[in-house]
């Protein structure tokens, strides 16, 4: 199965805990494009991220999500992942008793089962070593339990490490910049930028413009109250930085 080249979100309405959060969101992401979604707290950013991967607590009440034209609403999260979707979590789960190495091996295998070529152990170790260096992570990370007792910054690096190792076609980054100091942000952005190319698309969700100094989006969207309120180019982010969200909500 080849990885998806296009993610379409059509008139998406999503409910969680009896409350409607997304109220008719439209967005299309092709590989080769980097989209940023910005929005104030409570606008529905994390709901969008979780819904795209199929979190069981989020219910799609109307609209559709399609990969290469095929609806994925009935697909389990792992099927979506095998089609090329990836979510870098804002708050990654801690998994005690499972080493990073063991987990990455299993996750890589799961991908490969959908996509053909299997890697030998030595190839796999080489790949890991290279990506760890890129993210300035020590090899001892591989023997630690996945995210267990990791600092906020370590967790974010681990998300980007997985992104770099698993090489999805469309990645969603949910506030990956939050809680990172400037050096860590630069490292994480470098890891992300190494993936950018014609076969890779991304949706970068953020509250602040800061990350967009290091990750260059082609499109910027502003999410307000569960809908895209405005779309534009990179200049939109700068405008927001200067004027805040108020000018949109007041309109």
């Amino acid at each position: 199965m080849s990885l998806a080249k296009k993610l379409e979100i059509k008139n998406l309405h999503v409910k969680t805990e009896e409350k409607e959060i997304l109220k008719g969101l439209d967005l299309t992401i092709n590989v080769g494009e980097i989209h940023a979604i910005m929005g104030p707290n409570g606008s529905g950013k994390s709901t969008l991220a979780n819904t795209l991967l199929g979190h069981p607590n989020y219910e799609v009440t109307e609209g559709d999500i399609l990969l290469d034209g095929e609806s994925i609403l009935e697909m389990e999260p792992d099927e979506r992942a095998k089609r090329g979707l990836f979510l870098a979590f804002q708050y990654p789960a801690e998994i005690p008793g499972v080493s990073v190495m063991n987990f990455l091996r299993l996750a890589t295998k799961a991908r490969v089962n959908g996509n053909g070529q299997e890697m030998s152990i030595s190839e796999f170790r080489k790949l890991l070593k290279e990506k760890l260096e890129l993210l300035q992570m020590d090899e001892s990370f591989l023997n630690r339990y996945l995210n267990d007792g990791f600092s906020g910054g370590e967790k974010k690096r681990m998300e980007i490490l997985q992104l770099a190792v698993l090489k999805p076609s469309i990645a969603i980054l949910d506030e990956t910049d939050s809680g990172l100091d400037i050096d860590a942000l630069k490292t994480v952005a470098a890891g992300f930028n190494s993936l950018v190319g014609p076969d890779f698309g991304a949706l970068v969700i953020t509250h602040y413009q800061r990350i967009l100094n290091y990750i260059k989006p082609n499109f910027v969207h502003i999410l307000v109250d569960g809908k895209i309120a405005k779309s534009g180019g990179p200049e939109l982010a700068l405008h927001l930085e200067e004027h805040g969200y108020a000018w949109i909500t007041e309109k």
Partner: peptide, 20 residues
């Protein structure tokens, strides 16, 4: 959800968590 979002099927994810 975290493990499934990485491509592990539900049974694989449960097995991994119990092993962990």
């Amino acid at each position: 959800f975290y493990l499934q979002s990485r491509g592990l099927s539900r049974p694989e994810a449960v097995q991994l968590l119990v092993r962990g």
